[in-house]
């Protein structure tokens, strides 16, 4: 049967039908958002106090959550990929839990651990007067809990496929462990770090369930953009749509950054 130049590996034409359904299914909600956006008073909504507060808080907390993920997540990824220690499999499974856990459940779990009556949180309160719940740092905790696994898994995966011989070569030339990590491993990991970082940032930015459960909802303090969108939906739906546009813009921006990175690594590999 002649395929008139179509390679044999390309799918049969009938596959195009469900594929188009899938594409429409994913695309139409975004079209709806753009179509129904209150373009005429968009400026007023976006520059309102609530919106600006929510945008600023979202950017600050998502950035902080990403930084937390880098500071403690990357070392964990390194250990998981390269170190032999008892319970490593359990640790790896634990890292994936926030990925599959409904975020609201994550929020409740965070309250029971770090809340005022939580198993750890009660000591924060009594020893240092520190409370996380209902504060901006609480938002960072909720976001980091949900988003950090994206960085850990991306970096761990990259570390495991990294050619260890390059590092061994550096070792034979007299470099110490930290020097090798800094001068050899880290540059090789850079694409994975960027990809994982962007994913983590995007996930943190969109976090809703764990944030509202653990950190509550107070404009200017813990009300991030997704929360403002939800609350807006109960009061002024057009405001919710306008705020959704900002989230969409920031998320797509992150995605474009990520795609660029992937394309570049694809070309170099």
């Amino acid at each position: 049967m002649s395929r008139r130049g179509r390679p044999i590996t390309s799918p049969p034409r009938i596959v195009a039908i469900p594929a188009v359904i899938a594409l429409l299914f994913l695309g139409l909600p975004i079209v709806g958002l753009l179509f129904r956006a209150p373009w005429s008073n968009l400026g007023a909504v976006l520059t309102s106090r609530t919106s600006l507060d929510a945008l600023r808080l979202s950017l600050v907390t998502a950035t902080a959550a990403t930084m937390v993920a880098f500071v403690i997540g990357v070392p964990l990824a390194w250990m998981l990929a390269r170190a032999q220690f008892p319970g490593r499999r359990l640790a790896r499974a634990l890292v994936t839990v926030p990925l599959v856990l409904p975020p609201v459940v994550g929020g409740i779990a965070l309250l029971l651990a770090f809340g005022r009556r939580g198993i750890v949180g009660q000591y924060f309160e009594s020893c240092c007067g520190v409370t996380l719940a209902f504060t901006a740092p609480g938002v960072v905790v909720a976001e980091a809990f949900v988003a950090m696994p994206f960085l850990i898994i991306t970096v761990e995966g990259a570390l495991r496929v990294l050619d260890a011989r390059v590092e061994e070569a550096a070792a034979t030339l007299g470099a110490g462990r930290l020097t090798i990590f800094r001068r050899v491993t880290l540059p090789l990991l850079a694409p994975a770090l960027v990809a994982g970082g962007v994913l983590t940032f995007a996930r943190a930015l969109g976090e809703f369930g764990a944030t509202i459960t653990f950190a509550g909802n107070l404009p200017g303090v813990t009300q991030t953009l997704p929360l403002a969108v939800y609350v807006g939906l109960e009061g002024d739906p057009s405001e919710a749509v306008a705020l959704s546009l900002i989230l969409l813009a920031v998320s797509v921006g992150a995605l474009v950054l990520l795609r660029d990175r992937w394309l570049r690594t694809g070309a170099s590999a």
């Binding site: 029971l112 009556r117 719940a133 509550g216 107070l218 404009p219 109960e234």
Partner: peptide, 17 residues
């Protein structure tokens, strides 16, 4: 905090938060 509905307020009280 300004919770989304009254049951969420009750939960926060119940948990002692």
């Amino acid at each position: 905090t300004q919770e989304l509905d009254v049951k969420a307020v009750l939960t926060k009280v119940q948990l002692g938060e």
